[in-house]
Simulated scan of single mutants.
Amino acid sequence: MVGIAVMTGLAFARFSRPTARVLFSRVAVITPHNAMPTLIFRTANQRRNMILEAQMRVYLMRDDITLEGQFIRRLYDLKLLRNQTPSFTLSWSVMHIIDEFSPLYGMTAESLTQTNTMLIISLSGIDETVTQVVHARHSYAANEILWNNQFVDIFHHTPDGHRYIDYNRFHDVLP
């Protein structure tokens, strides 16, 4: 009887854990935003509730050669325009300005490929329904970062003035 109770408890604990169910765009883009080159990717909350106090962290990982000529796989933090939101409900366009302080400064599509560059994304927040922390991760390889493209607008208005998001175009980009 004790064994059955323990197994039931373990099964319940495993299946009652919330999952983030966050959608990430298939590609990231580098496009001008306020006259500055900007790395942008999209996320969307696929749950019917909110993720509270959501925090986004983005890392750039690439091969580097030190001044001594040694190979090293280096990890850089990317500073975001907004790395947290009080409630992640629908969609979030994550942006990193490429200025002289950015590890992407001076890079090209070719140099990203040559250095095996990868973006690593980590999202965490509190599921509003069960008040437990949820996590989501994603990564973009160098060939999934499109230069001089922009995302298609997914926000639309109904005739009566309400806004909605067209998720059918969530991954679409324009040159």
Score class of each variant (00 low, 15 high):
W147D: 04
P18H: 10
M36P: 01
S16K: 03
T129R: 12
V173H: 08
D77M: 09
Q114A: 07
T31S: 14
L60H: 04
E110K: 07
R42A: 13
A13V: 12
F88M: 12
R26S: 10
H96M: 03
Y76A: 10
A136I: 02
N148H: 14
D153W: 04
M95T: 05
H33A: 11
L174I: 14
H96T: 00
N83Y: 05
S16Y: 06
L174S: 15
T43C: 12
S111L: 07
Y167N: 08
F155M: 14
E144S: 04
R17N: 11
A44S: 14
V6I: 15
L146Q: 01
L104A: 02
M118S: 08
R163Q: 14
T158N: 06
S102H: 00
P159W: 04
Q114E: 11
A5L: 15
I120S: 12
I4W: 05
F15Y: 12
A5E: 14
D127G: 05
R14A: 15
F15D: 03
S139R: 02
F24D: 03
A11N: 05
T115L: 09
S124F: 13
A35R: 05
F88H: 11
Y76N: 14
Q55N: 12
T89A: 09
N149L: 08
T158H: 05
A54Q: 08
H135T: 13
S25E: 14
I51W: 10
F151K: 11
Y105K: 03
L39A: 02
R74A: 08
V29M: 04
N49K: 08
N34D: 06
G3N: 11
F71N: 03
I121E: 02
G69M: 09
I40L: 11
Q55M: 10
P175C: 03
V152N: 09
R74C: 03
F170C: 02
P86Q: 14
T43W: 07
H171T: 07
E128T: 12
E110A: 10
I51A: 11
L80A: 00
I120F: 12
E68H: 04
T19R: 07
G69I: 14
V173G: 13
L75S: 14
G9C: 02
A20E: 04
W92Q: 13
R82K: 15
N34G: 00
Q46I: 08
D63Q: 13
L39Q: 02
V27H: 05
T113V: 07
H171A: 02
L104G: 02
L112A: 03
N148F: 11
N148I: 12
V130M: 11
R82P: 09
L123A: 09
S102N: 01
L81I: 10
